[in-house]
Design a protein around this nucleic acid. Structure first.
Lengths: 185, 185
DNA sequence: GAAGATATATGACGGTCGTCATGCATAACA
DNA sequence: TGTTATGCATGACGACCGTCATATATCTTC
């Protein structure tokens, strides 16, 4: 039997999920509280019994989305041997499907500059970036730490640039470049 | 003697410059026409004798800002020998001052995802990216084309990530990684 | 210097934003 | 089963948004 308290927590999660989806596809400032609540199947009024402000929601949704990505990378690196884990992480990140699916994409590549402007979110983002770097370092051979910084930079930059390119051939050039930095193919 | 026509063109440039500055520091949707005109030393009403809409201004400001960056890179690559030109371009891009100065920063790193969502701007952006890739390829040794894609990805990603990091040591890790991909130090 | 042209300012419009006070169903508990 | 608590809906607020009609001030031209 589902208690009132559980029901509220589920609703809260639905709001977070809808906000994450809408923020990534349209940008944070282009999406109002009204649209977020509608995306969660609710009306706008109840919002403030779940979050103190839209800005508080923004902070929570960016931090939790990125933490979710970090956790997924950690899970992959525990399930598979280093080279296979690296390949899975990098290939899925540089997959044209990931480039196209803005609404489910990594926060670093879809909301990076917007999040960087909100200083109060940066501690949580920094923590998640550390976790992602640690996973990459664990999977990489050679000078692991340095190569993790290089690879994460290249992955994020490649997706941002591929999304900016009108020409699919040019976009693919960036994705291939990311794979080479990872040591794949 | 400055004609009325010249005066209008100058005003238009001031509006473009103010918009570029404000869009980069606060995000496109966070800045209204009112703030842009005030930033150019005018009041809001005259805006529509210079631009058809805010969206038209956004398209022009992002395209012209990036074209300006591409032209600067081309000028550097003509003035100096390949290795020195590469060092100047990469060092200034990965300079902590460039990371901090959001309002004068490269459009790719400060507005990348926002511009990518506006499909009508992408042809102009793609053309500027091609010019930047060509400059890097001209300055790089070895497999020039491939390395240009790798380097531009790493440069953009490094700046985005450095801006997200609360910890200056971590931020510097990304900037150093970009320099290594360029073959510097 | 008068008349016309034009760059910018004033002011207002409908719409949407974030926020919150209030009302109503439904669930929790006696 | 009646009472209380609470999650969400309704509706409204002031502020701000993009846009435009109109007025003013300045420059051009005769």
């Amino acid at each position: 039997m589902r208690t009132t308290h559980e029901r509220k927590a589920e609703t809260r999660d639905r709001i977070l999920a809808a906000a994450g989806r809408l923020f990534r596809s349209h940008g944070i400032d282009a999406v109002g509280v009204d649209a977020i609540m509608h995306g969660a199947g609710l009306t706008h009024g109840g919002f403030y019994s779940h979050f103190a402000s839209k800005e508080a929601l923004v902070a929570e949704v960016s931090a939790s989305s990125l933490a979710h990505s970090a956790a997924r990378w950690e899970r992959i690196s525990e399930e598979e041997a280093p080279p296979a884990a690296l390949a899975r992480i990098v290939e899925s990140y540089l997959d044209p499907a990931h480039v196209a699916a803005m609404e489910r994409s990594c926060v670093l590549a879809s909301l990076g500059p917007d999040v960087a402007r909100r200083h109060e979110v940066r501690p949580a983002i920094t923590a998640a970036i550390r976790r992602m770097l640690a996973v990459l370092a664990r999977c990489l051979p050679g000078r692991r730490q340095q190569r993790a910084f290089e690879l994460l930079s290249a992955m994020v930059g490649a997706v941002v640039l591929a999304r900016l390119c009108d020409d699919p051939v040019l976009a693919d050039g960036f994705l291939q470049a990311g794979r080479r930095i990872a040591g794949l193919r």
